[in-house]
Design a protein around this nucleic acid. Structure first.
Lengths: 244, 244
DNA sequence: ACTGATTTTCCGCATAATGGAAAGCGAGGG
DNA sequence: CCCTCGCTTTCCATTATGCGGAAAATCAGT
């Protein structure tokens, strides 16, 4: 039914990604449960195609070829999201966004603007750090505590406003809250006066994107958060199912 | 030596990317020369893993899973580029950048700053449109005339300064020049007073990234362009070889 | 409802991938 | 300097696995 070697090659790539993009043969073996010989052979094929690279210490890393494919795929996702974002705007009256995690940045890949006079707009393509945005929190909350901490250390959690969370410990607590509550908030942490609410988009397994609404603090705060979150969860679930 | 089915699966993914991320079975067959049954089986495996998606009209498209892998790979590329960019700064005295094409945007993925007092900096993560930057021109010049035109139409080529090229026809001519000359210039087309020179980075086959130097117009113009371009070509070639 | 183009399924055959085990390599310690 | 240990790479007989031609099914257009 499914082509075994292709399936396994994908397992190898995903194992590499899970290890931060770089791993030794034995680490991959431990992660995938495949025999050494098999993994090595798969890596060699990916190697000659430029999708994997071997470093001087003989460890393996994800290669540049994936950047191209990822870029094209991203544009596709943006197109598919459009109708769901439109419905989210109808639901909330505020600007709706779709964002993904790319490296250590959050990237807004699609947006539908609110019809109101005062509104957020033109964020598509913008890159921001995860710690000061609702979408960022949702995306990072999917990672393990250790991965999240490593990412926060790399980015340094710079203060954007008086409300920005700049302490790793506080952020880990916030991420726990996001996980249990199922949605994340940004209360003027990226920009004063702008509040956001974001939910994760699952494609079956992991979180692949985050969907959010953002607008002036007063209007966002006037909405019933739990009710809005519930509606967004449904939209995100429908979108996630379509992606799969 | 190489795992046949994995190789072919990669052919299929690349064929999809070449067709703008979306194609029918027969188009893929034409592009790869593989029999229908084989392609269909490969697509089904990629489908169940979320790396390919089937649309309602039964055509196939690149799936969301690739966005994740691409993001991690991008971070790797940035790390590997660092030493080459450092050498480029030594060579030119100006800030050196590495950029890739992601969807319709150019993204700066790595940078090493010039030691001078007046310098460009903090561009990593920035997304700009291709038509007004040297790196953008280099990346788009690798695409076919038709693809380039489609991209330029989607982005609309907005004017950033008085020097910005806003006519598709003029840009196509400029891209021809870039191809024959081997490097691209940006003479204050993105920001007045800022000039750039960029060269392509090949990883054997296609252009995977662009390397550039940017700085104040007077200093960039004072450099010997052909000599600088030659030095940059060598660095880009070395980096490209390392990627492969 | 019919036709043509495109996609999907089927199945016997042979090839292509498998994986255990042995050889090679390199870093670190005695 | 040589030995050891952990990890990576190569090898090869075996058979499961993927192959691909051709038929069946589906869809769009007339």
């Amino acid at each position: 039914m499914s082509v075994q070697s292709v399936d396994r090659a994908l397992d190898v790539l995903e194992a590499l990604a899970d290890h931060g993009g770089e791993a030794g043969l034995s680490e991959i073996a431990a992660a995938t449960g495949l025999p050494y010989g098999t993994i090595h052979r798969l890596l060699r094929t990916l190697l000659t195609r430029g999708y994997v690279r071997q470093e001087s210490d003989r460890r393996y890393a994800l290669g540049g070829g994936l950047v191209r494919l990822g870029g094209v795929a991203e544009r596709m996702v943006a197109v598919w999201a459009q109708p769901y974002l439109t419905r989210l705007v109808e639901l909330s009256g505020e600007t709706a966004n779709l964002a993904v995690l790319e490296g250590d940045f959050v990237v807004y890949v699609a947006q539908v603007s609110s019809p109101r006079r005062l509104r957020m707009f033109a964020e598509v393509g913008r890159r921001v750090l995860p710690h000061s945005t609702a979408v960022g929190k949702v995306l990072v909350a999917d990672r393990s505590r250790a991965e999240a901490l490593a990412l926060l250390e790399r980015t340094g959690m710079p203060r954007k406003t008086a409300n920005t969370i700049t302490e790793p410990a506080a952020m880990l607590a916030e991420l726990d809250l996001v996980r249990t509550r199922g949605y994340a908030l940004d209360l003027g942490e990226e920009e004063l006066g702008v509040h956001c609410l974001a939910v994760p988009v699952h494609d079956g397994g992991r979180v692949v994107a985050a969907m959010s609404v953002s607008g002036p603090a007063e209007r966002i705060d006037a909405l019933d958060r739990d009710e809005l979150a519930e509606g967004m969860r449904q939209l995100a679930a429908a979108f996630g199912t379509e992606l799969r």
